[in-house]
Design a protein around this nucleic acid. Sequence first.
DNA 1: ACTCGCCTATCTATCACTAGATAGGCGTCA
DNA 2: TGACGCCTATCTAGTGATAGATAGGCGAGT
Lengths: 193, 193
Amino acid sequence: MTSKATTQDQILDLAQQYIQQRGYNGFSFRDLANGVGVKSSSIHYYYASKTDLVVAVTGRYRKGFSAATDQLKVNNLTAADVLKAYAQIFKSTLEDNKRICLCAMLASDFDSVEAAVTDEVKAFFADQYKWLASIIASGISHGTIRGDIVPDEFAVLYFSALEGAMMLAKANDNPADIELVANQMITMTQRAA
Amino acid sequence: MTSKATTQDQILDLAQQYIQQRGYNGFSFRDLANGVGVKSSSIHYYYASKTDLVVAVTGRYRKGFSAATDQLKVNNLTAADVLKAYAQIFKSTLEDNKRICLCAMLASDFDSVEAAVTDEVKAFFADQYKWLASIIASGISHGTIRGDIVPDEFAVLYFSALEGAMMLAKANDNPADIELVANQMITMTQRAA
DNA sequence: ACTCGCCTATCTATCACTAGATAGGCGTCA
DNA sequence: TGACGCCTATCTAGTGATAGATAGGCGAGT
């Protein structure tokens, strides 16, 4: 009946989970093989090298994340509400088996991975900066965000703080800190001058 | 002559550097041994296990960091200036061979390390939160920081943002982003109501 | 309709290498 | 003479990767 998850999809799903939980150097082809129920050579059949596998996972993640953020735009919410919803993605990710942003993990592992991976990670960050800056700019033009905020700069701040909060919230086992961090920044974008 | 760096100190120094650059799973006893100029068994002579080694590195790092932050307090600077100087520690660390905060790296590797390590990492974070909150509270009482800031909450925000910015600045090869992030937050603590 | 050729997906078995860890020895210096 | 500091040698367990085999499906040509 249902559940037509192919072996390849299962490999990608589990690899993503492992990277988000343990990082690039924290899992092996055998871990993956055991989890999926095949032999490690079968993973090599789909992905010649670990780099190839991680590039595939990261590309899929980037697409999926962009699809998720684009959905936040459709309703006619204020910029502050969109930013809050964006932060909820981070909190939900952490609450899903203590996962960290895939690209944050890979960024920590930058010195261990090949350029094909770092390129994909950098592209993800660029995507997010651009998307956040557009949300902020829109808020300013609608008058719901202070006019002295610089969209490109606040995008870096907001994203940095969420990534950092995610890591700390995992260490301290306190996902609510992500909201605490997001809400303080959002308040600051609205406080009257 | 000079340079009395003992083998043990060299081991700790290099282990710290490797953790900050590659994370817990990104270096081996052999890497360390080659770098110091001894055999890997000699490292086991000082530290029975990798866990023991990392606990020692982390404890030393925590002490050293506290010593550095306590020095920022002595002069009669405004809270904003102290917070700026604090952010400079993060920028300098990144500029020193692209190192990330040791505890941020270990927090990313939480699922790979034993409790003895995570305890030390959590203690470091608690130290920093406490120190930052005291600086902020002092700024409020001196009237240089807005009274509607909550020290404990802003400490989490400020620290999260710096840790996140550090990781992103490394990935994007742009240490100045750390200052950009810090300055935006400091501005927000001072903007008139 | 049959079969030939090729593809897909997986297996077993193994490669060379690296991981952390351990046992025991040897020289130096107090 | 005994502890310290470091060595050689080795172990067990795993690493990513590769070779070669196999079972079954699918499509084209006769």
